[in-house]
Design a protein around this nucleic acid. Structure first.
Lengths: 230, 230
DNA sequence: TAGTGGTCTAGACCACTCA
DNA sequence: GAGTGGTCTAGACCACTAT
């Protein structure tokens, strides 16, 4: 006897979509009909369909009913784990080196993007992340001292700046940009690779309401892959 | 007077987290307490907290209560739009060229990964995607003819293989891998760039239950960025 | 074992939008 | 105007787990 939980109904509906019972773009029976078919309350069916809608698998409109999403492209969930976890997941020992740490005035390009007043100083950090003592990723970071004054006194010996911030400061919004670049001399030197080697680059900036918290740029050693399930 | 909708409660709870009322890792009042505070049914509070839990902002455990997630790293939602949409979003006209299309036996490396029986033929496609008639991305793709026989007769003049598949065939699971690579001669030639230039690479494979549907590899022209909100 | 979240129900009203 | 999804409520029982 099948349980009539919203999860089991979600799965059943999913199966029926995959089986071809409802083609891409086709109309699905209404909530009341499905509730009767499954022998449960409409609320329960609603919840199952809501879940599918959140995942982008169906499209719902009042009066228009529920349709199977006409396109199969979905949004991928990206994990973005801590660097330490990424390294440890490969079975290597994680370590890091702070190669630079100083208060200074950010260049105009950075300052305007972060909406900092002219003349403001920010904390600049360069960190080399290691896997089994070999370079894994090179990080450059700006931190807003006004927003996170505690960071000045934080010891970064055992916990990287990334990890310290993630465990200490909330943020309300942020963005990530992924790209590929040829290593310049500075990067190549830090990662111990050849100039021109293709490196995977991640740019991340976070905000708390309208105050800038931190921005970072990560250069991964060649061979790095970012994996995601659909 | 504030409406007591699950959305407004979600927002209010979010604000209280951002304001520091509840620090990272701190315990949030129980559902009954919050329901009383907001003057609504527990179900409504539950829904708001569920939403925050789905987004990874809070962690909930029976008997243990609800806590603000101790780490601010969240999962990013990646859009993965159609190439045509990516191109048109930049204000350019989209076009594509199929530079190769033939049935052939995939190499062992591909065959085993896709769990195809030895000797099986599959459809191999090479497509050049254009923005304003200039190369934008180069795609190589394998399609399982057994799973998608209709593709043999599909005209690809006006709709790319990518788009045709996305609009015609559902899938139940898939994976995406992002990486960076130096362009080899073949890629450089197709994209009209120099050998060694860093290209952004996307690998995507989709399945319907346990049958392989298609796998593709996309090489983007230098300068391409993948953007995502946190 | 007690307290928390997880879930289902039955009923109700509302908001949107298609015909 | 009618039919669909969107949502809230009040109550109930269950499942897990910290103490």
């Amino acid at each position: 006897m099948p349980a009539t939980t919203h999860q089991s109904i979600r799965q059943s509906l999913l199966d029926r979509i995959h089986s071809g019972e409802w083609a891409l773009g086709a109309l699905i029976p209404g909530e009341v009909a499905l509730a009767e078919e499954y022998g449960c309350a409409r609320t329960t069916v609603n919840r199952a369909l809501q879940a599918l809608a959140d995942e982008g698998l169906v499209v719902r409109r009042r009066r228009g009913g529920t349709r199977v999403s006409p396109q199969t492209v979905r949004t991928a969930q990206l994990q973005i784990p801590l660097l330490r976890e990424q390294v440890e997941a490969t079975g290597c020992a994680y370590g890091h080196h702070i190669t630079m740490r100083k208060k200074k005035t950010p260049p105009a390009s950075v300052r305007t993007r972060l909406r900092l007043p002219t003349g403001t100083k920010a904390l600049f950090l360069e960190t080399l992340h290691l896997a089994d003592d070999r370079p894994f990723a090179f990080e450059t970071r700006w931190v807003n001292i006004q927003a996170v004054p505690e960071i000045i006194d934080a010891s970064m010996e055992h916990v990287s700046a990334n990890e310290w911030l993630v465990q200490s400061v909330p943020f309300s919004s942020g963005d990530v940009v992924f790209s590929a670049a040829n290593a310049d001399l500075h990067i190549a030197d830090a990662l111990d690779i050849a100039v021109g080697d293709a490196v995977f680059v991640v740019d991340r900036t976070t905000w708390l309401d309208d105050t800038f918290i931190t921005t970072m740029k990560l250069h991964y050693r060649p061979g790095y892959q970012l994996y995601s399930q659909l």
